[in-house]
Amino acid sequence: MPALAAPMAGRRRGGWSLAARNAAFGYVLMLPSILFFLVLIAYPLLQTFWISLHRMSTLTRQGEFVGLANYRALLESADFWGAFGQSLVWTVCCLALQMGLGIGFALVLNARLTFRPAARALVLFPYLLSTVVAVLVWQWLFNDMYGYLNYLIEEYGLSDGPVNWLGQSPNAMISTILVAGWKHFPFVTIAVLARLQGIPPALYDAARIDGASAWSRFWDITLPQLRPVLAMVIILRTIWDFKEFDLIFMMTGGGPRSSTETLPLLIYKEVFPKLSMGSGAAIAMVMLVIMVAFFWVYAGQYDREERARSR
């Protein structure tokens, strides 16, 4: 043994132990991620916060330091509170619609269907479509003069006159939410479907023998098995819906009369038409705080429930 141990000890470089060398290697591997984080996330974040403390023109990027004045102005602005409310309605409704459609389609596609492969490819279609194309198609469908939806309505006599889908409140908000639901539900479907296919069929067999109805089998087995994936999908979709810009901007431009103006559209309005970069940055910071708060509460809740279950 000693004859073996001696040369091994001699190989220790610079007196570092094996554990220390492994740890050092770990830090080296982490370095790129840390750099990416600093350059791509921390710097722009601090920069935005810094801008939000200034009264600054978008064109010149010059302006005086005003402290929290931009934030104070926001809290007193009716535009901000309007957009805040619309963002809330938008996010909650989009999320509900996407989750409902997404889970529903996933359940249908998970059933043994002869046309399942084709249907699975087809269901992805709206998600793959570029937003510009999707908006153009839907604007044509929604058009109050020659749109296909109004043609159908007239054909079947569902309404007295043509429906003003996009030019009237609250129709514009509802129509836009419908399009966002249609556009993004496939993401939910794909995520949920992947999980559904991993649920052992024997669980359903056992539940049938135990006397569970189709509804209880969904409630007692499918849903609990989906919990982790639903938690993730809800987080991602909430973030994406909350900061949705292009779809609303192209559908309605925030109108009519700011009725579909959500916080991202308000930022745009502040920064570009109004050239007020400081207050735009302040709204962006508020959005960030809202998202972080949501994430905090939601993740905490999920953690607590998980811990309660595993006890």
């Binding site: 052992p200 024997a202 067999d205 056992a206 609990p224």
Partner: peptide, 26 residues
């Protein structure tokens, strides 16, 4: 009838007590 499966097919998100109770609850 009651059935015991090769994979046991216990409900993984339930406690042992909840598993045992399940057929009674239903």
């Amino acid at each position: 009838v009651a059935m015991v499966f090769q994979s046991y097919a216990l409900y993984p998100h339930m406690t042992v007590r909840q598993n045992l109770e399940y057929p009674l609850r239903k």
